[in-house]
């Protein structure tokens, strides 16, 4: 059972951590060469898919971890970190990211449009900070997990 647990936990971390690292070091620089309108479409579509992939990764980590960990201080850190990561993915995937792609109404005037634009830019900036924080937490929790097994 420990082998299966180890396989699931490692696969979960691969899906989750590999996804964040790819988004950060592949997608983020690649989008700089795209037209803003296309970036928006691609970003929205990727966000929809990525949310489920990240949650699946975190789910597989929890499933595998059940076979591996017993109660001690490392487990508490891992569990708290895992909950923070789940919270961040749900918050970003269901609230911040969709709102950062909100469209203006057909009846909107110039002032409404500017307000919406500044709101979207603020949400994008918040999203970027959250993504960096998520990456930091994920790397830290993975390190604690490795330390636990060593």
């Amino acid at each position: 059972m420990k082998v299966i647990g180890g396989f699931l936990e490692t696969t979960g971390w691969c899906i989750y951590l590999g996804g964040i690292l790819t988004m950060e070091f592949v997608w983020r620089p690649a989008q700089l060469d795209l037209a803003p309108a296309q970036t928006g479409i691609l970003c929205l579509q990727m966000g929809k898919r990525y949310k489920w992939l990240a949650l699946a990764g975190l789910g597989v980590i929890a499933l595998g971890g059940r076979f591996l960990y017993s109660a001690n201080w490392q487990l508490y850190i891992i569990a708290i970190g895992w909950l923070v990561l789940v919270g961040l993915v749900i918050l970003m995937g269901s609230l911040v990211h969709p709102r950062s792609h909100a469209k203006s109404l057909a009846s909107a005037d110039e002032k409404d449009y500017r307000e919406l634009r500044s709101k979207r830019l603020a949400l994008i900036a918040l999203m970027n900070k959250m993504l960096r924080f998520e990456l930091f937490i994920a790397l830290f929790v993975a390190l604690v997990g490795v330390y636990y097994r060593a």
Binding site: C14, I15, Y16, T22, M23, V26, L42, L53, A142
Partner: peptide, 23 residues
């Protein structure tokens, strides 16, 4: 070792099932 396999496996999954279909 974990980071290396995460980049390879997780990156491939993300490229294949997130970026590819979104294009």
């Amino acid at each position: 070792h974990l980071i290396a396999v995460a980049i390879y496996l997780g990156g491939s999954i993300t490229m294949e099932f997130v970026l590819g279909p979104a294009q």
